[in-house]
Design a protein around this nucleic acid. Structure first.
Lengths: 249, 249
DNA sequence: TCGTATTTGTACGTATGTATT
DNA sequence: AAATACATACGTACAAATACG
């Protein structure tokens, strides 16, 4: 290998991650093309000066990325040299921005603080004495509102981010940062609904026009609630991509 | 451990899968409750008479299931004793059946064979000389049509299943079996559309009423196309659940 | 605050089993 | 039948993060 690879924090990454990086590099360069068989694990391990166990850890990562496929007795087959890190709905992202047919060029925020309603006491596991921030976000493209978000974040979470509540840009940045944090998972529901008065007004559509609504709660890996949100989409502007998967036999 | 665990094919499962089974058993019994710390890996490995490496392979499976959470220096913490194998949209399933608010109690099929249109030659990677089966499925609940599916399956795939094309029940069973096969993945799009004449008629709704449409192609892990389908849902009857996830830091 | 013990993470080596060619 | 290649399993050692006195 060329030398130790350092991650974004300038800390040396584990050896097997470095190996993973080397091999993904090969695939991107086209050293091995889709359908090709990689050299055997013993050979690869020797070439890269690592033990076979370490190499296999790297292979695991490649498999998770869908870049290679392996079968006992056959070998490790290259599936794709594309960058498979496409973001579909199965990953947490901001669907308002990610799946809009038109690029979102403006967002507006209004922030308020309230004690949680009983419903949010329940879903955010809070007591009535705490406070939650209610952030309304409108997403515009070329002057037209494309979607509307209703975000509920517990006060503690907002404090942890060290956010200046008066700076809307900063709050929005923190919200986006939250969605990109590693180790989160969500429970999400998606359905069709019709616009009520206020929403219709904000989005500039007729009352009772159909809308797509996504409701979700986002948690950390420790099951601690991070936020709860309702997203309303103008259906004509949105198409949701998704990769579904059946893993084990 | 109680003894070797055999899988559904009566073949002895690998040791680390057996260990995984033992520990999930403990969690279900409540031997360790959410928030508890599991004994250290060295201790567990000794108790279960396996090497620490093997135990760690089992721990990996537990982590993937979201049952435990581990942190260097802390230990392995139990997150949940629930059965986390809930099926959301992130897994391949039959959304028509899975996400309908009313139980589906009847399906009707019509099957036809055609050479593929240029579009399906492209997505199913077929030549014009082959044949695809076009299966239309209508899903009913209490006499009312709730959804409509348009499934395209290459002839070879259908032949591999050894299916009698004249037996609609058998074809439907094979279709469901396909969706449950391990190792598959899909590229799926979900959006809102409006009913055209024929669909409106089948579903008993007005023309131009809004519908949810899901279009997807399903592939094997080898990137071989298995089927392509369009699913049309009566939006009032459907709510889609989904678990989104951000894995690595 | 500091050092020490505990606990998981990484890495190596070796041996054997099992599926494919 | 033999060779090849991945899968499983064991053992050892040290590194790094955390917890605790």
């Amino acid at each position: 290998m060329a030398g130790p690879i350092y991650n974004e924090k300038n800390i040396k990454a584990p050896l097997y991650v470095q190996v993973y990086g080397t091999i993904t590099g090969w695939l991107k360069e086209g050293k091995y093309k889709p359908g090709d068989k990689l050299p055997g694990e013993n050979i690869l391990a020797e070439q890269l000066n690592v033990s076979r166990g370490t190499l296999r850890q790297a292979m695991l990562l490649l498999q998770e990325d869908g870049l290679i496929m392996n079968h006992q007795g056959k070998g490790n087959i290259v599936l794709s040299n594309k960058d498979m890190s496409q973001s579909g709905m199965e990953k947490i992202c901001n669907p308002m921005v990610e799946f809009c047919n038109e690029p979102i060029d403006k967002v507006t925020l209004t922030i308020g603080f309230q004690p949680p309603t009983p419903k949010y006491q329940e879903v955010l596991k809070l007591s009535a004495s705490t406070v939650i921030a209610i952030i309304d976000i409108v997403y515009y493209s070329q002057g037209a509102a494309q979607g509307f978000a209703n975000v509920y974040i517990p006060y503690d979470v907002l404090v942890k981010g060290n956010v200046d509540f008066d700076d809307n840009d900063e709050v929005y940045r923190y919200y986006c940062e939250l969605l990109e944090t590693g180790g989160l998972y969500s429970d999400t529901r998606l359905r069709v609904t019709s616009a009520r008065e206020r929403t219709a007004q904000v989005l500039g559509i007729k009352e009772d026009d159909t809308l797509l609504i996504m409701e979700e709660e986002i948690y950390t890996e420790f099951d601690a609630p991070v936020l709860s949100q309702k997203l309303l989409f103008r259906p004509s502007q949105y198409e949701f991509a998704l990769r579904r998967k059946n893993d084990r036999m």
